[in-house]
C-alpha cells in the first residue's frame, strides 16, 4: 500500500470528478492501539500512531499501514480482509467489530480511534487472543449434522420453508465478536456464550438433524442459555447481522417446551 499509483482510466464513462484515486478524500487519524507483549512486559499499554488515510480505507488498512511501514512488531489476525473468515474481530472505539468491515470515515476521525483485543479471552500478543476457550464451547454443542437412519442415496431433502427456519444462524463466521461482547462471559468465562448457542440453533432447527434434543440438554446447563440476560450486546456486535439474542430466545423456548 506504500505506492499509491492511481488506477488506469476506466473504460466506463464516469461523471467528471468521480474517478481516480487521487480524488478520494484524505484525512489524518490517530490510531490508538492497545499493545501487549509478554516477552517484554506484563503490562499492556496504549500506543498512538499518526496516519494519513483515504476515505475508502478501513481500520484494517490502518493496521496494515502501521505494521508494514511503521512498526512490524504489531500483531493482529486477518486472513480474507473481506468479512468472510472471521479472523479480525476486535474492539474498535469500545465496540466489537471486524477491522476489515469498519470504514475509517464512519468513525469519528477527530478523536483517536481506539483498537483493542476482544475482551474475555486471554490476550497472547497485541490484538491476538487465544480463541481456544471459544472453540471449545463451540465443539461442545456438536456443530455437525447428526442424522439417524440409513444414509440416503440422494440428497437429504429439505423444503425451502424448513430451510428458512434456521437461515439466520447459518451465517455465522465464528469471529467471536458476540461472545466477547457479553458481560456474562467476561465475568468468569464459564458461560457457553452466544456463538455456541447460535451454532447449536443452526442444527437444532434443521429438519434433517436428529440430535436437537441432545444439544438442548447440553445448553440446559447452569452455564447454558439461562445465563443469558438479554443485554443485546451480541446482536449489536455481530458483523453478519445475525439476530443473536433472538436465536438464544428460541433455544430457551425449545428447552422449555421440551421439558414441560
Amino acid at each position: 500500500m506504500s505506492t499509491e499509483v492511481s488506477e488506469p482510466a476506466s473504460k466506463v464513462d464516469l461523471a467528471p470528478g468521480a474517478s481516480g484515486s487521487g480524488e478520494i478524500p484524505q484525512f489524518d487519524i490517530t490510531l490508538r492501539v492497545r499493545r501487549y507483549d509478554p516477552e517484554v512486559s506484563e503490562e499492556a499499554y496504549w500506543e498512538d500512531f499518526e496516519l494519513t488515510m483515504y476515505g475508502t480505507d478501513r481500520v484494517l488498512d490502518a493496521l496494515h499501514k502501521v505494521k508494514w511501514e511503521i512498526d512490524g512488531s504489531l500483531s493482529f489476525r486477518r486472513s480474507c480482509a473481506h468479512g468472510v473468515c472471521g479472523s479480525d474481530a476486535m474492539r474498535i472505539n469500545g465496540r466489537n467489530r471486524l477491522a476489515c468491515k469498519t470504514l475509517l470515515k464512519d468513525l469519528d476521525t477527530a478523536k483517536p480511534i481506539t483498537v483493542e483485543a476482544i475482551k474475555g479471552l486471554p490476550v497472547e500478543k497485541d490484538l491476538i487472543v487465544d480463541m481456544e476457550p471459544f472453540f471449545q464451547s463451540y465443539r461442545e454443542i456438536m456443530p455437525f449434522l447428526v442424522a439417524k437412519g440409513h444414509e440416503p442415496s440422494a440428497e437429504r431433502y429439505q423444503s425451502p420453508e424448513d430451510r428458512e427456519r434456521y437461515d439466520d444462524t447459518t451465517k455465522c463466521i465464528l469471529c467471536a465478536a458476540c461472545t466477547s461482547s457479553c458481560p456474562v462471559f467476561w465475568t468468569d468465562g464459564q458461560y457457553f456464550g452466544p456463538a455456541a448457542i447460535v451454532n447449536a440453533h443452526r442444527f437444532i432447527f434443521d429438519s434433517r438433524d436428529d440430535a436437537g434434543d441432545m444439544r438442548l440438554e447440553i445448553l440446559n446447563d447452569k452455564e447454558g442459555v439461562w445465563r443469558c440476560r438479554t443485554t443485546f450486546n451480541c446482536s449489536e456486535a455481530c458483523p453478519r447481522g445475525i439476530q443473536v439474542t433472538k436465536a438464544i430466545a428460541e433455544v430457551k423456548q425449545a428447552v422449555l417446551t421440551r421439558s414441560i
Binding site: 487465544d130 476457550p133 472453540f135 468468569d188 464459564q190 447452569k222 452455564e223 447454558g224 445465563r227 421439558s259
Partner: peptide, 20 residues
C-alpha cells in the same frame, strides 16, 4: 484440547432443570 486456561473448563454441573 487440553491446553486452555483451566478457568474456562466447565465442571459438569448438577443435572436438572433448576436454572430453567
Amino acid at each position: 484440547s487440553g491446553r486452555i486456561d483451566a478457568k474456562y473448563n466447565r465442571v459438569p454441573g448438577r443435572k436438572g432443570n433448576f436454572e430453567m
